[in-house]
């Protein structure tokens, strides 16, 4: 067995186990952390497939930012696991249907040989081929309009989410950093010149 194959099986085994634990773990924080573990292993598999840009982007975006914010929220929730399990049986038919659909789709992809998917030959690239560069070139030439459109839609989504949840409370207090920086000592402190009221004690009279 080739060394790469061993790595692939280790990564996939851990990924599958972690994915299973995501849905079976009782504690939501544990589930989120198993999802992180799963992402790591998937990214390793992508590296094996020589998709280094996607692998790094997965770690950077999902593990580094999305899951951190996710954990941020999940850790602060007080989730009652018992209540979540109450309607398990009533949701089961729908969930099972979606699950079966996904299994069928994955089966079609995995058994692609019978559906003619392997008509497209696997490509071998020269050693100095950089898929980051190729991806960037494609995104900013052939696919520039869809790419820009997608980013504008995301921006609209962000702004919409902020605007929907923004409430201006009357009693909230704000600082004005510009004003704070512009403060001068004489605005806050007044030095008054006062005459000495008591005579200084004569030298050598201490205790």
């Amino acid at each position: 067995m080739e060394f790469k194959t061993i790595i692939f099986y280790v990564l996939s085994a851990v990924a599958v186990l972690a994915a299973l634990r995501v849905i079976t773990a009782r504690n939501p924080v544990h589930a989120a952390l198993f999802l992180v573990l799963c992402f790591f292993n998937i990214s390793g598999i992508w590296l094996l497939l020589q998709a280094e840009f996607l692998a790094m982007a997965l770690i950077m975006v999902y593990v580094g930012a999305v899951m951190v914010l996710f954990l941020f929220v999940v850790m602060m929730l007080d989730i009652n696991v018992e209540r979540l399990r109450q309607k398990f049986w009533s949701y089961l038919p729908l969930g099972a249907m979606v699950g079966l659909l996904m299994v069928a789709e994955m089966g079609m992809v995995l058994s692609g040989k019978y559906f003619g998917l392997d008509a497209m030959p696997g490509q071998t690239m020269p050693a100095d081929y950089s898929n980051t560069k190729e991806l960037g070139r494609l995104l900013f030439t052939d696919y520039v309009y869809p790419f820009e459109l997608a980013s504008v839609i995301l921006l609209v989504g962000i702004i919409a989410a902020v605007m929907l949840t923004l409430r201006h409370r009357k009693d909230s207090k704000h600082l004005n950093p510009g004003k704070q920086i512009a403060v001068k000592a004489k605005d806050r402190l007044r030095i008054v010149s006062m005459p000495v009221e008591k005579d200084q004690p004569a030298a050598g009279q201490g205790e």
């Binding site: 992180v36 280094e52 840009f53 790094m56 982007a57 770690i59 950077m60 593990v63 580094g64 930012a65 951190v68 950089s130 980051t132 560069k133």
Partner: peptide, 17 residues
């Protein structure tokens, strides 16, 4: 590696965990 900067960004962003 060619994507060295991406690797650095990815690995350092894991540090917060």
């Amino acid at each position: 590696v060619d994507a060295g900067v991406l690797y650095l960004l990815a690995i350092t962003s894991v540090g917060v965990y």
